[in-house]
């Protein structure tokens, strides 16, 4: 299947992909610690954006509550590590399980009760916010004062316990992003992916053509929430602190989806491109507005840029760049 993806791409696109991959692989040896920290965040958003995109962009189900899956993954693995000394390499399975169970619960209720579109999105928001308030009151999880991972001065990188230098975290999230990309491109070119796209385009017509809607929507939610939960594990061990006040919030979900939407929903490169545009944009705005000493200037321009993209590039940046760079194979057919 991967061979097929490569076959169908143009030489130019493959060359670009190879250059970008190579650059990302050697980046930690070329850039300073600040740029590395920005790259780490870029990759994190590329990863979770890809996971979210699978649900909306591929299968047509809009979630505005993906913060829930990040948070569940983060809290589960962190709590297991802090309270029972379970290393994240094992805790990750519990984290995935928690996220998938939550995703399936929401999906089950939403799809069984035929809650669609905006209403389904509101259901995902409600579950995320609801869970956040509950966690806010569980003192075992640190409640509102937060959950902290022990930070020691680490001499060496300990991959099993996810304790180490930013470079280690960089390679971990790079590997995850690569994995998610490969997985998504494989899924998209499989029976599953074709069924998802059929559901996204017209669910009644898909059903009449033999697509079992409920099962395939549930698979999409399960994979998407599980992948997002893995992102949460990485998040917990990279940042070392978790606050329900920010983790479960809709604003966190918005950050997750932003890259994909800006890059291009439903495309494989959209989430990655979006993250590479938005995170540095935020950094540039921070630097540019630093001297003004005025709260809100940065976020204003941020909102302005997003609104501009929605208004003027509603298909996202990727389809546009795709044409500009001439990445299309000779024959018609995108992606």
């Amino acid at each position: 299947m991967i061979a097929r993806v490569i076959e169908s791409a143009s030489p130019r696109a493959l060359a670009l992909l190879a250059v970008v991959t190579a650059a990302l692989l050697i980046a930690p040896y070329l850039v300073d610690s600040y740029v590395l920290s920005v790259l780490i965040i870029v990759l994190y958003f590329a990863y979770v954006g890809q996971a979210w995109n699978l649900m909306l962009g591929f299968a047509g189900q809009l979630s505005l509550g993906h913060a829930l899956f990040v948070s569940l993954g983060a809290y589960t693995s962190a709590a297991l590590f802090i309270k029972f000394g379970v290393p994240p390499v094992i805790g990750i399975f519990a984290a995935i399980a928690m996220a998938v169970v939550a995703g399936c619960l929401i999906g089950y209720l939403g799809f069984r009760f035929s809650i669609r579109g905006v209403y389904f999105a509101l259901l995902t928001i409600a579950f995320a916010e609801f869970t956040g308030i509950i966690v806010d009151h569980i003192s075992w999880l640190g409640a509102s004062s937060g959950l902290f991972l022990p930070v020691k001065n680490q001499q060496s990188n300990d991959l099993l316990n996810l304790r180490g230098s930013p470079t280690m975290f960089y390679y971990v999230i790079l590997a995850l992003t690569g994995f998610a990309f490969a997985l998504c491109s494989w899924l998209l070119n499989s029976k599953l992916g074709l069924y998802w796209q059929a559901i996204r385009e017209d669910q009644e017509a898909a059903e009449a053509s033999g697509v079992p809607l409920f099962r395939y929507k549930m698979i999409a939610v399960a994979i998407s929430s599980g992948l997002t939960g893995i992102g949460g594990v990485w998040y917990a061990f990279y940042y070392n602190n978790l606050f329900p006040e920010t983790m479960f919030k809709t604003s966190q979900s918005v950050e997750i989806i932003l890259g994909s939407v800006v890059g291009g929903v439903g495309t494989l490169f959209g989430p990655i491109l979006g993250a590479f545009v938005l995170t540095p944009l935020g950094e540039i705005l921070t630097a540019a507005t630093d001297g003004m000493h005025l709260d809100g200037v940065k976020s204003f321009f941020w909102g302005f840029c997003v609104a501009a993209i929605v208004l003027f590039r509603p298909q996202g940046l990727w389809p546009w760049i795709y044409d500009v760079l001439g990445l299309a194979p000779k024959k018609e057919g995108k992606r």
């Binding site: 809009l62 932003l258 005025l294 809100g296 976020s299 204003f300 941020w302 929605v310």
Partner: peptide, 30 residues
């Protein structure tokens, strides 16, 4: 503004309104 996104998918409308919200918060902050 909003008129121009009427034909777009739900998530684009959501994002436009969310960015309007961010801008409003920022203006109030300033």
């Amino acid at each position: 503004m909003v008129r121009r996104v009427a034909h777009l998918a739900d998530h684009m409308q959501f994002l436009l309104m969310a960015s309007v919200a961010v801008m409003l918060i920022s203006v109030c902050l300033m």
